[in-house]
């Protein structure tokens, strides 16, 4: 589950419609990761995971949006990002989560790699119903 957004800090929505948007999303996630005092390595992991998932949303989902913001739970702070598209969905989730498997021209590391880089990872999808991927990285 996506943790509750931190009180008083509304998450922002960023469009994912063209490849230039990926640059803005990386910048936004970086700013949030610094705000929540993630370590440098954890910042790098979160930004990289977001970049992979945003590109998936663009290429495989036909575009969509990401909602990103600070989260807090049990006295911890972190960054969360929810990527949503209304594309074709993923028919075989296990296959899509396998390293090296791709339905497009990529390396097949986006989903599986992004999951390894974050603390919480949730994938909701069904054929014809789009895909939502939620990730969270907590400050240690």
């Amino acid at each position: 589950m996506t943790a509750p957004w931190a009180a008083g800090e509304d998450p922002k929505v960023y469009p994912i419609a063209r490849s230039g948007d990926l640059v803005h999303i990386r910048q936004a996630i970086r700013a949030l990761a610094q705000q929540s005092r993630l370590s440098l390595v954890d910042q790098t992991k979160m930004i990289t995971a977001a970049s992979e998932l945003a590109r998936n949303t663009l290429i495989y989902g036909g575009g969509g949006k990401v909602t990103a913001g600070l989260v807090s739970a049990n006295g911890r702070r972190g960054v969360a990002a929810v990527f949503e598209d209304s594309g074709p969905g993923i028919p075989d989730v296990d296959q899509a989560m396998t390293d090296g498997w791709t339905s497009g021209g990529g390396l097949g590391l986006g989903l599986s790699g992004a999951r390894r880089l974050v603390d919480d990872f949730r994938l909701d999808t069904a054929p014809g119903e789009g895909t939502t991927v939620s990730i969270t990285k907590w400050a240690r």
């Binding site: 390595v41 790098t44 992991k45 390293d99 590391l109 599986s112 790699g113 992004a114 390894r116």
Partner: peptide, 14 residues
């Protein structure tokens, strides 16, 4: 390459 980038790349699977 920065150390954090190297760590992330390897964990990503590249």
């Amino acid at each position: 390459m920065r150390p954090a980038v190297a760590i992330t790349l390897v964990e990503l699977g590249l």
